[in-house]
């Protein structure tokens, strides 16, 4: 069986046994996903790339700590979220005027994005940071409420509320008329 056919958890257990090839397959699978997940959290593409690299390095160094009772994606995303928080804190400590990217786009931007593309993910990206993240983990990673709450360090009920608000806002944006004047 080739590495491509194996599940994430099987690849992770092979990586735990010392197979770097298995871990590389996980890198190919998850780096684009992490890129789109972390886009909201950091300002520049360079920062995202650094954060993704750091996430994978940390996961590789600590792969023996991975608990197979959880999905590999839950573990990896938890690492990414924690690293992004500490990255934000260190930047804020160095420069108190540091402001993360605006979370909610302007209405004009929403209309332009809606006209430019029918891709629902592009529209979802215009939602608030937390709502987009919850949607991503729910639909792109197929995580349960419990897993999303664990990754986002929120309670399960708050996660449900986040998802509900995200769906409401997305529905509003879909039915929003193209002309805002």
């Amino acid at each position: 069986m080739t590495a491509i056919q194996l599940s994430d958890e099987e690849l992770a257990s092979k990586a735990t046994a010392g197979s770097q090839t298995s871990f590389e397959e996980l890198v190919y699978r998850y780096s684009p996903r992490l890129f789109h997940f972390l886009r909201h959290k950091v300002n520049t593409d360079q920062d995202i790339e650094d954060l993704i690299q750091e996430t994978f390095l940390k996961a590789f160094r600590n792969i023996d700590r991975y608990d197979p009772d959880w999905k590999f994606s839950t573990w990896l995303y938890t690492i990414a979220v924690r690293l992004s928080i500490s990255d934000y804190r260190s930047k804020k400590a160095k420069d108190p005027s540091f402001v993360p990217i605006p979370t909610s786009p302007e209405p004009e931007e929403i209309v332009i994005q809606k006209e430019e593309s029918q891709n629902i993910w592009i529209l979802a990206r215009t939602l608030k940071k937390e709502q987009y993240e919850a949607l991503w983990l729910r639909y792109a990673e197929d995580m349960s409420i419990k897993e999303i709450a664990k990754v986002m360090k929120k309670t399960q009920i708050y996660t449900r509320v986040l998802l509900h608000r995200a769906r409401l806002n997305l529905a509003k944006r879909f039915s929003q008329p193209a002309c805002v004047f």
């Binding site: 780096s31 684009p32 789109h36 790339e49 993704i52 390095l57 590789f60 160094r61 993910w121």
Partner: peptide, 26 residues
């Protein structure tokens, strides 16, 4: 379609970084 918007060169960068770093601690 959404995932295509990604710099694939980053994968090679990460893998080369993995080669330089030590593997699992124990």
């Amino acid at each position: 379609g959404f995932l295509d918007d990604y710099n694939k060169a980053l994968n090679e960068k990460i893998i080369s970084a993995l080669d330089k770093h030590p593997g699992p601690k124990s």
